[in-house]
């Protein structure tokens, strides 16, 4: 029963993420704005991440009839979602950095000697940091513009961060209700990001050239 709920929630996340991605894409097509392009990538990644987990589990369970579900599907899905969270944080001005060789080795090599399920938790912690960053930046923006929709977005990102934290925390209590709660919190958070869409008229179809 829990499996059905988890799959349904993942598929709901897929639909919500995709809808937000399509909306951002319409915005990008209408205005040519790089910010909306980054949001478009972010929401598509988040939606696809949920979709990979939801559809992956469905295929393994109903088509391949696996008794034990592969954990790499979960890791892959969360990894794709993290890309989305990165683009949200990146839009707020995170400076990307690529460590020089000596440091690069110290960061990358450990990833290959740790067990597979630990990678999932590393990815979750990265997602958590990115989402907390995005939440703080959005709250700072709310302090400036005092827009009600901004506080909904901050709450949405905050709930996504809490969901990732609970998902990461489920390492201590595997097979508990924590994962289900984590997934539900993330879906509610994603839903809160829908609030600003209600304010936008979906008209036009113009795009400016890149030479402006």
């Amino acid at each position: 029963m829990a499996f059905v709920f988890e799959t349904a929630l993942n598929l709901l996340g897929f639909v919500v993420g995709l809808a937000l991605g399509i909306f951002s894409y319409i915005g990008f097509k209408n205005t040519g704005s790089p910010t909306l392009f980054r949001l478009n990538i972010a929401f598509f990644s988040i939606g696809i991440g949920f979709g990979v987990v939801g559809f992956g589990y469905m295929v393994e369970s109903f088509i391949l009839n696996y008794a034990q579900l592969d954990s790499w599907i979960q890791t892959l899905g969360i990894g794709i979602q993290t890309i989305g969270y990165f683009f949200i944080a990146f839009s707020h001005g995170i400076k990307s950095f690529f460590p020089k060789s000596r440091y690069f080795k110290s960061i990358i090599f450990p990833l290959f000697i740790i067990p597979g399920n630990s990678i999932e938790h590393i990815i979750r912690s990265i997602s958590f940091i990115l989402l907390v960053y995005g939440t703080i930046e959005t709250i700072m923006s709310y302090m400036e513009n005092r827009k009600r929709s901004t506080i909904f977005v901050a709450a949405g990102l905050g709930l996504l961060a809490l969901g990732e934290f609970l998902g990461w925390y489920s390492i201590i209590f595997p097979k508990s209700i924590l994962y289900f709660v984590s997934l539900s919190t993330k879906i509610i958070g994603l839903g809160a990001l829908f609030i600003p869409i209600s304010q936008v008229p979906l008209r036009g179809g113009l795009k400016l050239g890149g030479n402006i």
Binding site: F23, S33, H92, T138, S141, Y142, P196
Partner: peptide, 8 residues
């Protein structure tokens, strides 16, 4: 407005 809501 949409981007403003995200603080962007």
């Amino acid at each position: 407005e949409f981007a403003d809501s995200f603080g962007l």
